[in-house]
């Protein structure tokens, strides 16, 4: 079983690399292991994770709780450090990549500072990174436009709906022009209607900016709708069980979710989750 999995992974990885031969590798993980030492003994959050993400990819990570999808994203962001294997981000270690402002990170909660206006929230990373006042204003205007929040810069977070707050937090992650956007269940706390809308906007944003996006989700339709590649993960130990290349076109209206092609991919994701015993207990 183990060998078969590894073989399948390698196949799809190579297929991915060939398909995007022109795009440079952005994130590369080789035999990545991460073991947390807890009071109940060691917990293997990641085991033997091999993955290559190319520039401009939209990669979703899907799997049940404890499968290591968030942990993997945190390793990329240098918020956790692997206990084995190697990972590079833009050809650097994650720590170096962070200092080079390689990525913007979007968390599940918007986490806007209530004492700052939306514009000043977006300026937060810019202030820390030492942008000049004029640059800050220029960046804020640009990213507010990107997330359709023009004219809301002077509002306080509590004056905005949950979906708008999350868009503001995406704007904050985009503010310093990182090429990689890491999103950890960014729409998990929002209702389905808002979520659909934000998914549509996110695709549009991705199309316009050409960012590389790593996106953690619990939702099969969300993963299939958004991604160019879907990484299916399983828990205990956290590992990759399948990597699915999406055959959907880049242009994706919301009703693409009713096409047979979409349903076929969703079916394969579900099979991948089942193979990893994700539906046990």
């Amino acid at each position: 079983m183990g060998t078969m999995e590894t073989g399948m992974q390698t196949d799809s990885l190579e297929a991915g690399t060939e398909a995007a031969a022109a795009s440079p590798v952005v994130i590369e993980a080789r035999k990545l292991d991460l073991t947390f030492q807890t009071n109940d003994g060691p917990v293997q959050a990641l085991r033997d994770v091999n993955l290559t993400i190319n520039k401009g990819d939209f990669v979703s990570f899907i799997g049940p709780s404890g499968c290591g999808k968030t942990t993997f994203l945190r390793v990329v962001a240098a918020l956790e450090h692997p206990t084995g294997g190697a990972i590079t981000v833009n050809g650097m270690t994650p720590d170096e990549a962070r200092r080079e402002r390689a990525y913007g990170y979007v968390f599940q909660a918007a986490g806007l500072y209530p004492w700052r206006t939306i514009a000043r929230n977006i300026k937060l990373p810019l202030e820390i990174m030492g942008f000049s006042k004029a640059e800050q204003d220029e960046h804020v205007d640009r990213v507010l436009k990107l997330v359709d929040l023009e004219g809301f810069g002077g509002k306080f977070p509590w004056q905005l709906s949950g979906g708008m707050q999350q868009r503001a937090s995406i704007a904050r992650a985009l503010a310093f022009d990182a090429d990689i956007l890491l999103m950890d269940e960014p729409f998990g706390a929002l209702d389905e209607i808002v979520r659909d809308h934000l998914n549509e906007q996110l695709l549009e944003l991705w199309d316009r900016t050409g960012k590389t996006i790593g996106f953690v989700t619990h939702s099969i339709p969300e993963a299939v709708y958004l991604s160019t590649r879907i990484v299916v993960m399983s828990p205990r130990p956290g590992r990759i069980t399948d990597v699915i290349e999406s055959t959907l076109p880049r242009e994706r209206p919301l009703d693409i979710r009713d096409t047979p092609e979409f349903l076929a991919i969703a079916h394969r994701v579900r099979e991948g989750l089942r193979a990893g015993h994700a539906y046990d207990d």
Binding site: L79, R98, F107, Q108, G111, Y113, W115, L124, E127, I128
Partner: peptide, 27 residues
């Protein structure tokens, strides 16, 4: 933890974390 992680992703220093996050949060 999420708020502190966010500042870590900006490579913020301890004093920046203090002035921009901890102090206003403590008001």
């Amino acid at each position: 933890a999420m708020q502190l992680d966010l500042l870590r992703t900006y490579s913020a220093s301890q004093s920046e974390t203090f002035w921009k996050l901890r102090l206003p949060s403590s008001m």
